Simulated scan of single mutants.
Amino acid sequence: MSKFENFLDEKGRVKSWPSKHLLKIEVVKYIADKFEEGKEYSEKEVNDIIDKWHTYGDYFMIRRGMIDYKLLSRKRDGSKYWKEK
Protein backbone atom coordinates (compact mmCIF):
# COMPACT_ATOMS: atom_id res chain seq x y z
CA MET A 1 0.00 0.00 0.00
CA SER A 2 1.38 3.42 -0.94
CA LYS A 3 1.42 6.30 1.52
CA PHE A 4 -1.19 8.06 -0.63
CA GLU A 5 -3.65 5.21 -0.15
CA ASN A 6 -3.50 5.88 3.59
CA PHE A 7 -5.41 9.09 2.85
CA LEU A 8 -8.34 7.28 1.18
CA ASP A 9 -11.36 5.75 2.86
CA GLU A 10 -13.01 2.48 1.79
CA LYS A 11 -15.00 4.35 -0.91
CA GLY A 12 -11.91 5.95 -2.44
CA ARG A 13 -12.58 9.39 -0.95
CA VAL A 14 -9.77 11.52 0.48
CA LYS A 15 -10.25 11.54 4.24
CA SER A 16 -7.62 14.09 5.30
CA TRP A 17 -5.28 16.73 3.89
CA PRO A 18 -1.66 15.52 4.04
CA SER A 19 1.02 17.60 5.69
CA LYS A 20 3.74 16.53 3.25
CA HIS A 21 4.01 18.50 0.01
CA LEU A 22 4.37 15.50 -2.31
CA LEU A 23 1.29 13.84 -0.85
CA LYS A 24 -0.70 17.06 -1.29
CA ILE A 25 0.18 16.96 -4.98
CA GLU A 26 -1.01 13.34 -5.15
CA VAL A 27 -4.33 14.31 -3.54
CA VAL A 28 -5.03 17.15 -5.98
CA LYS A 29 -3.98 15.00 -8.96
CA TYR A 30 -6.29 12.23 -7.78
CA ILE A 31 -9.27 14.57 -7.54
CA ALA A 32 -8.36 16.40 -10.77
CA ASP A 33 -8.67 13.03 -12.52
CA LYS A 34 -12.41 13.16 -11.71
CA PHE A 35 -12.85 16.07 -14.15
CA GLU A 36 -13.28 15.70 -17.92
CA GLU A 37 -10.91 17.42 -20.31
CA GLY A 38 -12.61 19.82 -22.72
CA LYS A 39 -15.57 20.46 -20.43
CA GLU A 40 -16.24 23.75 -18.66
CA TYR A 41 -17.55 23.71 -15.10
CA SER A 42 -19.18 26.32 -12.91
CA GLU A 43 -17.67 26.92 -9.48
CA LYS A 44 -20.61 25.06 -7.92
CA GLU A 45 -20.02 22.04 -10.18
CA VAL A 46 -16.33 22.02 -9.24
CA ASN A 47 -17.18 22.19 -5.54
CA ASP A 48 -19.76 19.41 -5.90
CA ILE A 49 -17.27 17.09 -7.62
CA ILE A 50 -14.63 17.81 -5.00
CA ASP A 51 -17.19 17.19 -2.24
CA LYS A 52 -17.95 13.75 -3.70
CA TRP A 53 -14.28 12.78 -3.48
CA HIS A 54 -13.29 13.97 -0.01
CA THR A 55 -14.79 13.67 3.46
CA TYR A 56 -13.34 16.51 5.53
CA GLY A 57 -15.37 19.42 4.13
CA ASP A 58 -12.68 21.71 2.72
CA TYR A 59 -13.31 21.87 -1.02
CA PHE A 60 -11.65 25.31 -1.15
CA MET A 61 -8.21 23.93 -0.24
CA ILE A 62 -8.43 21.19 -2.88
CA ARG A 63 -9.76 23.56 -5.55
CA ARG A 64 -6.97 26.04 -4.80
CA GLY A 65 -4.41 23.23 -4.98
CA MET A 66 -5.66 22.10 -8.38
CA ILE A 67 -5.37 25.66 -9.67
CA ASP A 68 -1.95 26.23 -8.06
CA TYR A 69 -0.57 23.02 -9.59
CA LYS A 70 -2.14 23.93 -12.94
CA LEU A 71 -4.39 20.87 -13.02
CA LEU A 72 -7.48 23.05 -13.26
CA SER A 73 -7.74 26.50 -14.81
CA ARG A 74 -10.34 29.18 -14.34
CA LYS A 75 -11.51 32.46 -15.72
CA ARG A 76 -10.23 35.43 -13.78
CA ASP A 77 -13.69 36.06 -12.32
CA GLY A 78 -14.10 32.39 -11.27
CA SER A 79 -17.17 31.91 -13.47
CA LYS A 80 -15.75 28.96 -15.46
CA TYR A 81 -13.28 26.20 -14.67
CA TRP A 82 -11.74 23.55 -16.92
CA LYS A 83 -9.26 20.71 -16.63
CA GLU A 84 -5.81 21.25 -18.08
CA LYS A 85 -4.45 18.71 -20.55
Rank of each mutant, 00 (worst) to 15 (best):
M1Q: 10
M1G: 00
S2I: 03
F4P: 13
F4S: 01
E5K: 08
E5L: 13
E5W: 03
E5P: 02
N6W: 05
N6L: 12
F7E: 13
L8N: 13
L8H: 12
L8R: 06
E10K: 09
K11L: 10
K11P: 07
G12A: 08
G12V: 13
R13T: 05
R13A: 11
V14A: 04
K15E: 15
K15F: 10
K15V: 03
K15I: 11
S16R: 15
S16T: 10
S16L: 13
S16A: 14
W17D: 09
W17I: 04
W17K: 09
P18Y: 10
P18I: 14
P18V: 10
S19H: 13
K20V: 02
K20I: 11
H21V: 12
H21R: 12
H21Y: 14
L22D: 11
L23H: 09
K24E: 09
K24T: 03
K24M: 06
K24L: 09
I25T: 10
E26Q: 12
V27W: 06
V27G: 00
K29W: 01
Y30A: 10
I31M: 01
I31V: 04
D33T: 07
D33M: 06
D33V: 06
D33Y: 05
K34Q: 06
K34T: 04
F35S: 00
F35L: 03
E36D: 02
E36F: 04
E36H: 03
G38E: 05
G38L: 10
K39H: 02
E40D: 05
E40H: 12
Y41I: 12
Y41T: 05
S42Y: 12
E43T: 14
K44V: 14
K44Q: 13
K44M: 14
N47M: 13
I49R: 01
I49G: 02
I50P: 00
I50D: 01
I50Y: 01
I50C: 05
D51N: 10
W53S: 12
W53A: 01
W53E: 12
H54G: 02
H54S: 04
T55S: 15
T55I: 09
T55N: 14
Y56M: 13
G57R: 13
Y59N: 01
M61D: 11
M61K: 11
I62T: 03
R63M: 11
R63S: 07
R63N: 08
R64P: 02
R64F: 00
R64V: 00
G65I: 07
M66F: 08
M66C: 07
I67C: 15
I67P: 09
D68P: 01
D68C: 04
L71Y: 14
L72Y: 03
L72P: 05
R76A: 15
R76T: 15
D77C: 15
D77Q: 14
G78M: 12
G78C: 15
K80S: 15
K80V: 06
K80I: 01
Y81G: 00
Y81K: 08
W82A: 15
K83F: 03
K83I: 01
E84F: 02
E84V: 08
E84P: 02
K85G: 06
